[in-house]
Design a protein around this nucleic acid. Sequence first.
DNA 1: TTGCTCCTCACGTCACGTGAGGTGGC
DNA 2: TTGCTCCTCACGTCACGTGAGGTGGC
Lengths: 244, 244
Amino acid sequence: LSIGEVAGLAGVTTRAVRHYHSVGLVPEPARGSSGYRHYRAEDLVALVRVARLRALGMPIADIRARIATPEMSEMTLSDSLRSLADELDGEIQRLSATRDRLRDLAGSESFGNPADTLTRALRARRVLEPEQELPAAERTAAELLDALHPGGMSGLVDQAAGLLGDQEAMTWLAPLIERFRAVDDRSSDTELEVLAADLARALPRPPQAAPPIDTALVDKLLGDRLSPAQRRLMHLMRRAMDRK
Amino acid sequence: LSIGEVAGLAGVTTRAVRHYHSVGLVPEPARGSSGYRHYRAEDLVALVRVARLRALGMPIADIRARIATPEMSEMTLSDSLRSLADELDGEIQRLSATRDRLRDLAGSESFGNPADTLTRALRARRVLEPEQELPAAERTAAELLDALHPGGMSGLVDQAAGLLGDQEAMTWLAPLIERFRAVDDRSSDTELEVLAADLARALPRPPQAAPPIDTALVDKLLGDRLSPAQRRLMHLMRRAMDRK
DNA sequence: TTGCTCCTCACGTCACGTGAGGTGGC
DNA sequence: TTGCTCCTCACGTCACGTGAGGTGGC
């Protein structure tokens, strides 16, 4: 038989057959005067054995080990088939989880647009007027928050939904947002400390679910984005939150 | 931020970050005097965007296409997420099927031992005596049949179970097997023709489920294994079966 | 001063796929 | 004589992993 014929019978390509020869999985058959490989029954049997295991997902190294020690008992073969099945179980679970998240994200319409997502959320809560846009600095902040939060902006919005949905909370949160936006270098230390304390009291403690992000990194990121006064305010707030 | 810091925040390795730079997925950030990359908020945002899509299984080429045309609508993004999910569905199905076959084979104890499987089957049907071994030539034939049959030897045995399990059939099948084994070069053409006709009448038509194997290939394989008389017998049988 | 992180090549991974350039077989 | 199959390099795939050999930063 020619290489194309045995390949067809084994259900693999000729390239795969040559590959198995080159790595020693299947011995080279005899050659004719033209250099063509001539396969006999044993050669086909050896090839099909390998092709079957490959089709089941067994790596070449494992197949080689099995061929090197043909006295390996059936028990051991059953065991390795079972362990391949177990590995597949794990992979199927991972893929299923990813698929479910993909379907969620495809339906949520908020993936990859953190600023728009936040704008919509704030408008729905009347923190922004229907036609009012988010200030540029806060759009950047939204993208950063989205990047740092494992669940992205929609996860953040979900997490903050309790606060944003609470009408009573909004009556005192809105003025705080105004005061935060008004901070500049002319704000006095006393003002900053009072605002920091007020904000720390008002804001919910971040749930431990989100892995803690090194505050030094956040500081580095925001360093060139905030005014010195805002940076001092953030530090005061963080200290106040930590004591909480 | 350093490359290690952004990599940690994005949940990837530093090598992956450099790779994204080298293929143009994430722009190179500014460098310090020491040659170190210095990442700012935008750089982190760009990196996390890519890392999220990669974690969802989107190929780099697709991510690049999406970045090249940022005006691509949310609809299109939802669509590609959905199509990724659909691809995963297919892969999950394939993996589940393979896993099930692995579990079957692990339990069947007959994978990879066609001759032993056939010996057991024949002993159970009393075609072989309990201690009688399969003749060497028939062991080879069993391995070849196993290799050529898509379901392997256990599939073949299952397929032949109806015939082997039928006590009445065995009463006339056993003598036919004896007559087949006795064929040699002294057998006359008439004898061969009669035996071929008898065998063709007795054997079940192979079910069409098994993909037909080119008879010329089988002939090549058996050419050096059978005596000329046996080859003639096979040809006569095949002709008789085809007419059936 | 000692680790630790960073830098840039550049080869390795895994199981073949895919030409490139040439020759034998029906 | 014309396709078709076969032959042997040898690079390509995919997304990085892994040293190798060297230097800056805390």
